[in-house]
């Protein structure tokens, strides 16, 4: 047995650790085919059934970034991309709570790398998985005549990374606050659904204002609205600067809060009682 085992810092093992975490997330995703199908079926049901039904009811005026009238299916597609990322972020969060209950989370946190780095690696790995899902969805939507500019598929990548990181960081923060797996249903009801429905994912904000100014204002400050708009504008080769700023700000806030909560000295983690 050696007393001279080098520490990860000296060995330059940071990329190795990140790639290991990313590989594990990908393997878990590949092994759980049901999860991939569910992630894909959910937005496709919205696109094929919900959007088709609402096309006749909801008229779309010409609003940026669109330069002409668009079908409701076209309008709703960026929102469904963000929905995939929202649910993926929550799925990661759910798996972290599960990992914590089983002990797998502990093996991650006792790694000699700093905790913020481990959490960031897990976050980025989860976003990579969500981006694969979004591009698969966009490829299927293309056959449904939802065809943004070809360069839009490239331009949307940074937007997807940022929105995925923000939603993933939110999931990370929530996972640190949830004590038991059973509490997750509450998160779905009180966080996920309100966040999705009170946003511009399904209806433009001006439509919302016609119904209720208060609801419009709530939607306007919802970070998910800005994730949707960032994706929508990027898909049509534009930048929504306000949404970019909000997404970056929320990313920093959620991730900072998650790191605090998982801090061995300060956060919620430190208040959990052991068993033996």
């Amino acid at each position: 047995m050696t007393m001279t085992a080098p520490t990860p810092k000296r060995r330059g093992g940071w990329p190795i650790a990140f790639l290991g975490i990313a590989r594990r997330e990908t393997l878990r995703f590949v092994n759980q085919r049901g999860r991939f199908l569910a992630a894909l079926v959910r937005p496709l049901v919205w696109l094929f059934i919900f959007a088709a039904g609402f096309r006749a009811v909801l008229g779309m005026s010409i609003t940026p970034p669109y330069q002409t009238y668009v079908l409701y299916e076209v309008y709703v597609t960026p929102g469904l991309c963000a929905m995939i990322q929202l649910f993926n972020g929550m799925q990661s969060s759910l798996s972290m709570v599960y990992d914590r209950e089983t002990g797998a989370m502990r093996t991650l946190l006792v790694s000699p790398f700093p905790r913020w780095f481990l959490l960031a690696s897990k976050l980025v790995a989860g976003v990579l998985v969500s981006i694969i899902q979004v591009y698969t969805f966009l490829a299927i939507a293309w056959f449904w005549d939802i065809r943004p500019p070809i360069w839009g598929y490239v331009a949307v990548l940074p937007a997807l990374i940022l929105s995925g990181l923000m939603l993933g960081a939110m999931g990370l923060f929530l996972s640190s606050a949830i004590r038991q797996l059973e509490n997750f249903a509450g998160v779905m009801n009180f966080v996920i659904f309100p966040m999705f429905f009170a946003s511009s994912a399904l209806y433009p904000l001006w439509r919302m204002r016609e119904s209720s100014v208060l609801l419009h204002d709530i939607c306007a400050v919802n970070p998910f609205t800005h994730a949707v708009e960032l994706i929508r504008f990027a898909l049509y080769l534009q930048v929504n600067w306000l949404s970019l700023a909000v997404v970056l700000g929320c990313l920093a806030g959620f991730f900072g809060a998650a790191v605090f909560m998982y801090d061995p000295a300060k956060g919620n983690w430190a208040r959990r009682k052991g068993e033996g």
Partner: peptide, 27 residues
């Protein structure tokens, strides 16, 4: 560390689990 509760990922192979843990130590 060998924790009281299971820490290996049941869906992955032994090799995949150990590779993951090797990476967590930068190996």
């Amino acid at each position: 560390v060998v924790f009281q509760s299971r820490a290996l990922d049941a869906d992955l192979t032994v090799m995949q689990n150990l590779s993951y843990h090797a990476s967590l130590h930068g190996i």
